[in-house]
Design a protein around this nucleic acid. Structure first.
Lengths: 238, 238
DNA sequence: GATACCAATTTGGGATACCAAGCTGGTATC
DNA sequence: GATACCAGCTTGGTATCCCAAATTGGTATC
């Protein structure tokens, strides 16, 4: 197995010491989030085993972890990449609004709010020439880093988890230039309110931003669901 | 291994078909939450293997799942039962306030709020003769079931997760009769507000209830930390 | 042609063997 | 007596093997 040629170049040998489980987990997550494995697709432990050159033990460990992230699920006996679920996207929006608003209120009440400047710089690192992939990543990191400033591990974890579950849907969303610009402006407005310590205003802006994002996201995916299914992506309403 | 006499009666053979992984996970969780294995204690896969009569494959799977629940953690190489962490308890209170308030607001806005009566009946099933263990369970289930009424899977999961992480600390808390009665009254007051559809009042009462619970919990554990450590329980401040 | 049935294959669940890293206890050297 | 060192044991990580259940594909029967 270790001598399998497919296995040799399958593992990028990232850096120092990383267990096979971490390797498989990370690469499989990237393949799922990068839509190299489509929503709804079946996974077999043996396929992953040969694909990544690891034995079934670390493969199964990685699958168990990805299951708790909501990226894969059980399909009776067997594993399935989680489909895009429009109803779930709505529920996630409610969930993330609750935790993100709580986090931003905490942050706005901090004495040292200098962390917002780092986030602002991150936003400004994107311009018209920035590839879409980078916009996508920064758009998610904005919310994650904002939650991190709160200092609350559980709020941070919740936001990170929500963004992970939203990641594929956001990537599939049809977004025009105006939408990107609007999100950028809304992000900066939220930061401005936090910078001034105005928790109520920050919370209001953040709530509106999340609701707007949710509406555009669900509308876009709903309108495109035929095209998405034609690409082999499972899109379910409930 | 399967013929080991210790293994035979170790598995309560609960009911129909349950995989070894589920068996180990459930029993180990019960032992941890029931403080049969103390906070901070070391765990070895081989000990669990012989204790529950399962091989290392399901044992490792169970450990991985319990790790994501925060009940166990890695201690370099090796597994450790999560210690009681006072700082973490404070963070969980902030987290659960955010999600529980969001859930109760959703529930108060529902047309059909008949579910609250089931929860009220659950509360009333406890009286002076009810064993402390049952009070403990009902006290947690109140919050979980209230979140379930919201219909939001993520809020429910978050509350369930928070209650799991709080469970051992709440069990160790020194609570007198007055504290139990007060919690019972506060729970009923929250239900009354929900029953009337008064979301703001329900949210206010719930926030106050969570803050009060947190303060009493942390104070109690902080005052008792010497006694707890004497019992072999790891109690850390941060 | 439809359907019931059976064997071969596939697949996840579990058990076990092997390995490397780390810990332990004892010993020999100074 | 203190310390450096080494052998053996422990333990998590991994690979592999076996098994039962489920799927599949073909065939025989009606």
């Amino acid at each position: 197995m270790n001598l399998d040629p497919a296995a040799v170049n399958a593992a990028p040998k990232s850096e120092t010491t990383m267990s096979q489980m971490q390797n498989v987990e990370r690469q499989l997550r990237e393949m799922i989030l990068g839509l190299e494995i489509g929503p709804g697709e079946r996974l077999t432990e043996r396929w992953i085993e040969s694909r990544f050159g690891a034995s079934r033990t670390p493969v199964r460990a990685a699958l168990l972890r990805l299951e708790t992230e909501g990226l894969i699920g059980r399909d009776g006996r067997g594993w399935t990449v989680a489909p895009i679920n429009l109803a779930e996207l709505g529920q996630i929006a409610v969930y993330r609004e609750a935790v993100e608003v709580a986090a931003v209120r905490l942050t706005a009440a901090l004495e040292d709010r200098s962390g917002v400047e780092v986030i602002a710089a991150m936003l400004d690192s994107c311009d018209a020439d920035t590839p879409r992939e980078e916009w996508h990543r920064v758009g998610m990191d904005f919310h994650i880093e904002l939650a991190r400033l709160s200092g609350n591990e559980f709020l941070l974890r919740a936001v990170r988890d929500a963004m992970t579950r939203l990641s594929r849907a956001r990537w599939l969303e049809v977004r025009d230039e105006r939408a990107l610009g609007r999100a950028w402006a809304e992000h900066h407005a939220i930061l401005a309110a936090v910078r001034q310590g105005d928790a109520d205003e920050a919370a209001r802006l953040l709530s509106a931003h999340i609701a707007g994002s949710r509406d555009r996201l669900i509308t876009s995916l709903h309108d495109d669901r035929r095209g998405l299914r034609a690409r082999g992506f499972a899109v379910v309403a409930a």
